[in-house]
Design a protein around this nucleic acid. Structure first.
Length: 557
RNA sequence: GCGCCUGUAGCUCAGUUGGAUAGAGCAACUGCCUUCUAAGCAGUGGGUCAGGGGUUCGAAUCCCUUCAGGCGCACCA
């Protein structure tokens, strides 16, 4: 519907010789009595044209050619142009949507096949995923679904930090536990890992190799064996946690591999050739300040070891070289200070830094009954993503994450999430979907069903006469359903899946009262078919939206 | 000290990139199942949009400032 308004506005402005603004705002008026859709465009043009908004609005209206779809178009308030559709126009749009099936939503093809590399989670394989990772996972997966549905070619990537000190620490921690299994006391390294999972891995190794490494020192080659084994175990655990959470990846990029294939060296040498690398006090530095960062950054320490940033340069070079039109990184907000240097790296490599978009996910505070849950990774006491999934459920957890925009802090209260489970927003939306399915089943028993591309087994064509839908609840529902493509599009442009979440709650919030007040399946065949068609349309949008969010759409509850 | 994020109903959060009288869910209170699913519905109460200044036709939204919370400011990852 918003598309129709934009089109006729553009035509009218064109006829008036006014340049069409890039972004024409079309919104739903606060009060439905004002109209179905509204635009403040006359007010925004007021300054440019040096005319009163009301006058401009009137002129625009006078220049609108195709007004056949509208009951009325009028100026209101300080200069809004309000549009009210004819019922027939709404019925026509809804019929079109039913006929087109899934294509209706993605038909616009915003992405036009452009390639996006979406990197998210990328948690170090040194411990299980926690709730903050879950938030990134939920957002990343939803964003990938959203962008894919909009016609982008999205690759979901997980970057594995399997090189460097942390892996050595993990290996040594496991090694210490392994020795303990044979009654040999070894102190953990100072910053070692203490979780129960460390012991689990040690036990697994003992099962496999028995006492082969008993009593040895933590040096090559056993150090490599332990750290690599532990890393693999952790990755398996992370993968299975993500899978249980319903999040999958297309590619897993290993940091170690960047070193093994000399891609880090090559990237640095390339930059050295361009004059952005220098030696100072025994270390190798990158001239980040040339590209707007606060200070230059060390990439090789004076002990000869690379910093994390060194491999990140190579990694992001690899990303761009992969032929992607856009890179999206989802990071925890605690890494925000890192953005300027990575952008600097991209620029120094000769790439457009605007290609990279970093989405920051704010911290999650885990509460139980209003009190913070104490978590200490060092002591190995923390609640993992899996714990939360088992306690409150994956769908609820995801939905909670996706009802917030990424950059706001989040209090996740286990008691609230659980206690409210019966009246959780996620169930409200899912219930609407399940309820519609129940109605359709009921209708099918009475040999009443309608055929649409997604339900081809029906006996009646989608060209149902919708004109019996005259109740205000029905009008509201139709309009809300027809708004979905616009909401979807806005969510895509803003890269904000949470807009879908809120829309779905609103849609469910119209269907439930409708259901409660009116019967879908009645003695009146014409009315019944029309209502079934409306329900089908709502069902499709709910299903599509839930799919984007990565939340289950249950046939029954 | 500097930088980034946040501050909206008792609680958790939206607010369509500056638009009309600021919304939803929880929580509280009152009603509704013989009928397609009560995980639902109908109704009631609830606000100095942290405070102050500015920009303009118009500000929760943009700018400045104060306050509060969080997170960063490594030759850590």
């Amino acid at each position: 519907m918003t598309e129709i308004i934009r089109k006729i506005l553009a035509e009218a402005l064109g006829a008036m010789g006014i340049p069409v603004p890039e972004r024409m705002e079309v919104e739903v008026p606060r009060d439905e009595a004002l109209g179905d859709l509204s635009t403040p465009i006359a007010m925004s043009l007021s300054k440019l044209l040096r005319k009163q908004p009301q006058k401009i609005a009137e002129e625009i209206i006078a220049n609108i050619r195709e007004r056949g779809d509208f009951e009325k178009i009028e100026v209101a308030g300080p200069g809004f142009i309000n549009f009210t559709f004819k019922k027939e126009a709404l019925y026509r749009s809804l019929s079109g949507m039913l006929r087109e099936g899934e294509n209706h939503i993605t038909a616009k093809d915003i992405g036009k096949g452009r390639k996006i590399l979406l990197e998210f989670v990328s948690a170090n394989p040194t411990g299980p995923l926690h709730l903050g990772h879950g938030r990134g996972a939920a957002l990343g997966a939803a964003l990938a679904n959203l962008l894919s549905a909009a016609g982008f070619r999205v690759t979901k990537e997980y970057y594995i930090n399997d090189a460097g000190r942390q892996m050595a620490l993990l290996g040594e921690s496991v090694f210490a536990k392994y020795q303990e299994l044979f009654g040999i006391s070894r102190s953990l390294p100072e910053d070692g890992y203490r979780g129960a999972y460390v012991e689990d891995i040690a036990k697994k190794i003992a099962e496999n190799v028995a006492d082969r490494y008993r009593g040895l020192e933590y040096v090559h080659p056993q150090s490599d064996f332990f750290s690599e084994y532990a890393c693999k175990q952790m990755l398996d655990l992370i993968k299975s946690d993500l899978e249980a959470f319903g999040v999958t990846f297309d590619t897993w990029q290993s940091e170690k591999e960047l070193y093994d294939k000399h891609e880090v060296e090559q990237a640095i040498e390339y930059l050295r050739g361009r004059g952005f690398i220098y030696e100072h006090e025994g270390a190798t530095w990158f001239k980040a300040t040339e590209f707007g960062d606060e200070k230059d950054r060390v990439i090789i320490k004076n002990d000869g070891k690379y910093t994390y940033f060194a491999s990140d340069i190579a990694y992001h070079k690899k990303k761009v070289d992969g032929g992607y039109d856009e890179l999206i990184d989802i990071w925890g907000a605690d890494h925000h200070g890192y953005i300027p240097r990575v952008k600097a790296a991209l620029e120094s490599l000769g790439y457009d830094k605007e290609k990279l978009k970093v989405l920051l996910v704010q911290m999650v505070s885990l509460l139980r009954g209003g009190k913070p849950v104490q978590m200490s990774k060092r002591a190995g006491e923390f609640i993992t993503l899996r714990d939360v999934m088992e306690e409150v459920g994956a769908d609820t957890t995801k939905f909670m994450f996706l009802t917030r925009k990424a950059d706001s802090h989040l209090d996740f209260d286990l008691e609230v999430a659980k206690a409210a489970s019966a009246e959780n927003p996620v169930y409200y939306v899912q219930y609407a979907y399940a309820r519609i399915n129940s109605i359709l089943r009921h209708a099918a028993e009475k040999s009443l069903s309608i055929s649409t591309p997604e339900a081809p087994d029906g006996s009646v064509s989608a060209d149902v006469d919708l004109s019996p839908l005259e109740e205000p609840e029905e009008q509201r529902l139709i309009k809300k359903i027809l708004l979905y493509p616009g909401v979807f599009e806005a969510a895509v442009y803003a890269r904000e899946p949470h807009r879908i979440t809120f829309y779905l709650q609103e849609l469910a919030g119209l269907f439930h009262p409708y259901y409660n007040k009116h019967r879908i399946v009645t003695e009146d065949g014409r009315l019944t078919l029309a209502r079934l068609a409306l329900s089908m349309a709502a069902r499709r949008v709910l299903k599509d939206g839930l799919h984007v969010l990565g939340v289950a759409a249950p046939e029954r509850m």
